[in-house]
């Protein structure tokens, strides 16, 4: 994202505007050049992009590659699955990805017990070791409770998290939006808690924004036992750019999504939109929103009005 700095120097501005630009305070100019999202630290990793994207459900690898580029994500998620033994000509995901430019985050999708999730995490690490990818140090832990909703099993997730942390993994935990489950995962050693906005692939966005707000408060507010730099990444259910923006406006540090891009009618354009939406939400949150008021507050002054005002 750092390459998208706005053109603020006078050299980029046509002559008539350049003189006006010169009147802007140097402070404003300096701030404009800082309008790039800073990297996100998760465990020992530094993410240039706060948007993490999945690699599932694309029409083909070519479309996936273009969408990944448009998202500007530098971390992508993958799943661990059986080799198709007798289909040697099948194209491999690994051939389709610029592995040297990406950090792979292997998931344990499809696991319904802590034991299976630990097995799958170890297999993912083995594959990333073979590939020499830095993603070998971490895992996106999913322990699902039920195939219909794909909602996480909080107890199985905590068990698996503790086991994987003991085994040296940095664990990013897919969680429900339950604030106390999130605290328990943090206490079990999770490097990040990743609450679902709504069920995986549902496209319903942030179904319970108050729960996400409380979760973020407990994990990140030092007054409530949190740590300001503890990373919370909203994962799952995100359908539209405005969902991404809302997650960031609520104070999330990043967003992880797959279906919202991969199943859009135009995934490449949607990836671009999701990236912009994330930036909008990030800066919106940092800027401090105005207080909500029930009634109207005029933006233009009342003093100096010379027209009829009802009731006056």
């Amino acid at each position: 994202m750092s390459e998208t700095k706005p053109h603020t120097s006078a050299a980029h501005i046509p002559a008539p505007l350049a003189s006006r630009a010169a009147n802007l305070s140097t402070e404003t100019m300096a701030n404009q050049s800082e309008f790039t999202t800073p990297p996100l630290h998760v465990g020992s990793f530094q993410l240039r992009s706060r948007l993490v994207v999945g690699t599932g459900k694309y029409k083909d690898f070519a479309q996936m590659r273009l969408a990944l580029q448009a998202s500007r994500a530098d971390v992508i998620t993958v799943a661990v699955r059986r080799e198709r033994l007798f289909d040697k000509d099948g194209h491999s995901l690994l051939d389709a990805l610029p592995l040297d430019q990406l950090t792979i985050l292997p998931n344990t999708a499809g696991c319904f017990s802590a034991t299976d999730a630990v097995r799958v995490a170890r297999l993912g690490r083995e594959l990333l070791e073979q590939l020499g990818n830095p993603g070998q140090r971490w895992v996106k832990l999913e322990v699902l409770g039920d195939k219909t909703t794909l909602l996480p099993d909080p107890i199985g997730t905590i068990e698996a998290c503790a086991e994987l942390v003991k085994d040296g993994f940095e664990v990013l935990c897919y969680s429900s939006d339950d604030p106390i489950a999130a605290v328990r995962l943090r206490d079990a050693g999770a490097s990040s808690v990743m609450p679902a906005g709504s069920p995986i692939g549902s496209g319903r966005g942030i179904a319970n924004r108050e729960a996400i707000m409380i979760l973020i408060d407990l994990l990140k507010n030092p007054a409530h036992g949190g740590r300001a730099d503890y990373p919370v990444i909203v994962d799952a259910g995100v359908g539209t750019p405005s969902d991404v923006t809302l997650a960031m406006e609520l104070g999330a540090d990043g967003v992880l999504l797959n279906t919202g891009i991969a199943h859009a009618a135009d995934p490449v354009q949607m990836a671009h939109a999701m990236r912009l939406a994330l930036e909008a939400g990030y800066f919106g949150y940092k800027s401090g929103r105005i207080a909500r008021k029930l009634l109207g507050t005029a933006s233009s002054p009342w003093s100096g009005t010379f027209t009829h005002i009802p009731g006056e």
Binding site: T55, R81, R82, L93, L94
Partner: peptide, 10 residues
């Protein structure tokens, strides 16, 4: 024996 690889996923 299980032989596994990485595939697209979220």
């Amino acid at each position: 024996v299980e032989l596994v690889t990485l595939v697209g996923g979220g």
